[in-house]
Design a protein around this nucleic acid. Sequence first.
RNA 1: GUGCCCGUAGCUCAAUCGGAUAGAGCACCAGCCUUCUAAGCUGGGGGUUACAGGUUCGAUCCCUGUCGGGCACGCCA
Length: 585
Amino acid sequence: MILPNQPNFKSHFAELLHHAASKVASSDLTTRIELARTKQAKHGDYSCNLAMQLAKPLHKNPREIATLLIDALPPSPYLEKAEVAGAGFINLFLQISAKQQFPYYVLKHGSNFGHQNIGAGKKIQVEFVSANPTGPLHVGHGRGAAFGASLANILAAAGFTVTREYYVNDAGRQMDILALSTWLRYLQLNGFTIPFPKNAYQGEYVRDMAQLIEKAHGKRYVHQPDLLLQNLSSTPLEIEVDEEEQLNKWIVSAKKILGEDYAYIHNFALTEQLGDCRNDLMEFGVEFDTWLSEQSLFDNGMVAHAVELLEKKNYLYQQDGATWFRSTHFGDEKDRVVQRENGQFTYFASDIAYHLNKFERGFDQMIDVWGADHHGYVSRIKGAIQALALDPAKLEISLVQFAVLYREGKKAPMSTRSGEFVTLRDLRREVGKDAARFFYVMRKSDQHLDFDLDLAKSQSNDNPVYYIQYAYARVCSVMAQWDEDAAILHSTDTTMLTSPMELALLQKLIDFPDMVESAARESAPHLIAFYLRELASEFHSYYNATRFLVTEIPLRHARLALVASVQQVLRNGLALLDVSAPEKM
RNA sequence: GUGCCCGUAGCUCAAUCGGAUAGAGCACCAGCCUUCUAAGCUGGGGGUUACAGGUUCGAUCCCUGUCGGGCACGCCA
């Protein structure tokens, strides 16, 4: 007899079928045992299509195979019966007593209920957000943050050892533009009339930084602004010039004039923005284990080292003065530059070094969470990994689609450079952290998200966040009125839970560990969001149809055990999404 | 123009890596508060899964084409 070592009947049944299959189909069985929850009660609780899968290799009728499999099933106290149905489905019926006893498992495991061990402690790294620290996070970053954080929680619950990482793009041109922007605002603050390029950072936060520098150091960084102006005016305004090229000249000029002080401005802006970002994320419930600096990869020679490795493996060539990586060899549409004509490494080069670094740190699996606009980047980074003789299967790249805000039925405008964007902080202030976190993961990540601000704010049953939290608060209220030690519910007799609604609710609780597993395996936090909505819905129905605090004590305790289990699962599920579970509303 | 993603009820979205009669919520209609929180519940109508073929026991899912939408196509990051 085989008994489950954890309250997971689905995997238990899968195990039974596996044993049956090894008898029926002899040795070479490669078909995976897939169990599915049924949609209709007459099909039992779980169904399996194994017989249909085996029909071809065994050259037999599926229904015939199904019968053989059922006959070969080892006995189990949890299996009421198994039936052949339809084209050859095997329908499994869970013992009613197994369902009735389930609150015992839920209450016993408490906040750990639902946790799985499919990860088996394997080290997995989730890298997400990784936004340039050149300004406040906006609502686009919010989705990546919510998705990555929830996914990391789910993976941890599924038994993985998770490292949450933020890759800091502190090297490169964007940071230089920020430093320049800050200095220009600083000079303006000190009374110099200097034009501000439109492709520099326009945001108010740049002026704030300038003010902070002014407050702390006075005119310490006012260096030869006349010289800067001279350099700038060298290009006549009438002549059409490449604005980006022009901005580069400004940066070069600023570096020359500031000398060693440039590093101060640069570092100040970086520290300030990164601190703001970290703080913002923390208030959003998102925290990281490691922040890895791109600049550090240059400083410790990792970038040069990575490029050298590619060179040794003959995947590089020179053309037009630059060094190219042969990414077309790995399915990319064109080759990519790793080192520019001017000798500087590209962002791609440091990213190769970064991924090499990830592999060297010994993660069993890695997940990169990127905005969907980076999808064209996937093949080249996978190519580089292959070129370095690393296993690309260890790296999963999750592309998260954009979120579009809707206010009063209309799109809310958002663009980064113009300064007219909605920040993540603004969004949190408007709808609250809980609603923001939930709404961001309510949809499948590869699906565009329409974020309805009015709905997120509304305190109504239309709002899924409140709907779920309200279910939790209702249980809390009942428990408070009962006002006895909940510990006695852990061992109470629950066999009088027999109504269809109670059995459905019990089955819903049984499903939770499977949901955690699916969400982890498919990198799909939205499954948890949907599950919680359904669980809350079934609870509300039960609540309206049944009185819990009945005078008959055994029945009261049985129902309270069920309700307390619902409470526990709601709390555990919300915790995976970092959404709070308020006791009163 | 080329590549990737997407197209499911009036709207917003699911559908457990090909499974049984494609499901929820909103909106619409009709009901439920002397009773544990009505921020709730009950019932009802809503579909040729963009379109046309193909693959097989079986297709929203896989393949081909068409139409429509998004994104990407730098020695930017």
